[in-house]
Amino acid sequence: MIARLFSPGKGKAWARTLALGGTIAATLFLMWQSDEPPGSQEKAKELRGPAEPDGFIIQADYRTWDAQGNPKIRMTSPRIEQFESNNLAAMEQPRATLHGEGDPVPWNIEADQGSLLQNDGLVNLNGNVVIQRQFQGSDTTFKTDELTLNNTEGTVYTDQPVTITEPHGTTKATGMKAWLDDRILELNSQVEGHYDPIR
């Protein structure tokens, strides 16, 4: 099943904001890179063990604004751990608020865990993943257990069950892929929908 994901004009702004969020996360990851000589890093890794992070941030709260001073993104996490050998940043309870260009209504994203794979341009969210947007008193919500954001391709996908709740109905499916720039949503299998146009 293929359907339009967002109302015209809103998807591209959201996709740009999502890409900006990925860029910010990548920038934060690069900021964590150490300037120490490689030998020092290896010695430190031997002392702390391979399972321990190279660095971490407690109560992370990152915000960005556009040139006019309007908020673009806010990302928070109680703890972010950085592992240099895997180019991986692991986030506990990541929360993000994304503001689209010219769109006063933000998208809110949350999950139990998240990770940024810098080399692949992927953000993986795991456990109670919720994407929500409130507009004119009504919520549109995506819920799943795992979700991958591919900043390079501009896609969001999962092979897990997903539930989409909109003002006039609910859709359930197993597996989903969305092309953000094109505002297209593809539901893979076991698609079930319930709609109430009177509501």
Rank of each mutant, 00 (worst) to 15 (best):
G154M: 02
Q113F: 08
W14M: 14
E81S: 14
F6P: 02
P8C: 03
I57Y: 08
H194W: 14
G9H: 00
Q118N: 10
S34D: 15
I109T: 04
H194N: 13
D66L: 07
N150E: 02
F6I: 01
P37H: 08
N108C: 01
T170S: 10
M31D: 13
P8F: 00
P78Y: 04
A25V: 06
V123L: 12
A15W: 03
Y195T: 07
V105N: 10
L147Q: 02
E46D: 12
R48F: 06
L187V: 07
A173G: 07
G154L: 04
R199M: 09
G127D: 11
G39I: 08
L18P: 00
L149G: 02
G102M: 03
E42L: 15
Q93A: 12
L185F: 09
H168Y: 14
T148Q: 13
I131P: 02
I73M: 11
I198F: 07
D182P: 03
P94Y: 05
Q134H: 01
P161D: 04
E42R: 14
I131S: 03
L28E: 14
W32A: 11
A13D: 11
G121L: 01
L98T: 01
R133P: 01
S85H: 14
L122I: 13
Q41R: 13
Q118M: 09
E166K: 13
G39D: 12
Q136V: 01
W32M: 11
E84R: 15
M91N: 07
T163G: 02
G121K: 00
L47S: 15
K43L: 15
Q134W: 02
S189C: 09
K43F: 14
P106I: 01
T171G: 06
D139Q: 10
G100F: 00
L28Q: 13
L116R: 05
P8L: 05
T141W: 05
L5Y: 03
I198G: 10
P167Y: 03
V105D: 11
G22Y: 00
E42K: 14
E186G: 04
G154S: 04
Q59V: 02
K172D: 13
G121N: 01
K143M: 11
E192A: 13
G100Y: 01
Y157R: 06
K143Y: 06
Y157V: 00
T155A: 03
A15P: 01
D196K: 02
L98G: 00
D196C: 04
G127I: 04
I58Y: 12
L180E: 09
L47H: 12
N86I: 11
P38F: 06
S85M: 08
N119G: 09
W32D: 13
G121C: 02
Q132M: 08
K12Y: 02
S77Y: 09
N119Q: 15
E42D: 15
N108T: 04
E36Q: 07
Q33C: 08
V191P: 08
L47F: 12
T64A: 10
G121F: 01
Q82G: 11
M31K: 13
I184F: 12
D181N: 14
L125M: 13
I73N: 08
A15L: 11
